[in-house]
Amino acid sequence: MFDLATVFEFTRDTVILTVGITAVLASLGVILCSSPIYCALYLISHMICLALLFLLCNAEFLAVVQIIVYAGAVMILFLFIIALLGGEKEIQENSLERSIAFGLIFILLGELYLSATVGPTKQIEGKINPEMFGTAKAIGLELYSKHIVAFELASAVLLVAAVGVICLAKFSFAPLKRR
């Protein structure tokens, strides 16, 4: 009468579907909401939903890093800027850009439909150690063995960007007088 496996699958699917739909709705809120603060909050909730989706795929480390970096560090700066500049509501008006944007949405929906008709999704094949899957160790081993050059280059670029920001921020103003 009841099959446990299907019940479990059903709950899992429901959770995935709920999180996914919430993510889509939140991202719609980002572009449709007129108040910048609420836009930022929608973006945060979208990122948390993405982290939950990572978690549902057992990618624990990735989920936590997603929350720390994007939902935590990046978005707090967004809110910071909104608070400093004042979050006034913007006035929505019809324009050419708006109609182009709606056109793009329909094209994307069409593409989604096409990709859905291609067929069932396949799992990635390859050597994956099930015990280490999704942990920091697995990512570290991968990053520091196969992709070391790209990794070091990326860190150099980030360092240059950080130094550049400090230069731009520091020397464009007269230094403050010490009291």
């Binding site: 624990e60 480390f61 936590v64 939902a71 935590g72 707090i76 809110l79 909104i82 920091a136």
Partner: peptide, 25 residues
Amino acid sequence: NVNSGILFVFAISGMGIYGMVLAGL
């Protein structure tokens, strides 16, 4: 027993900042 437990604590306490910022805003 989260595998990256300490990162989890940092992530969640980082989200706690929003409460204060939102209260201020």
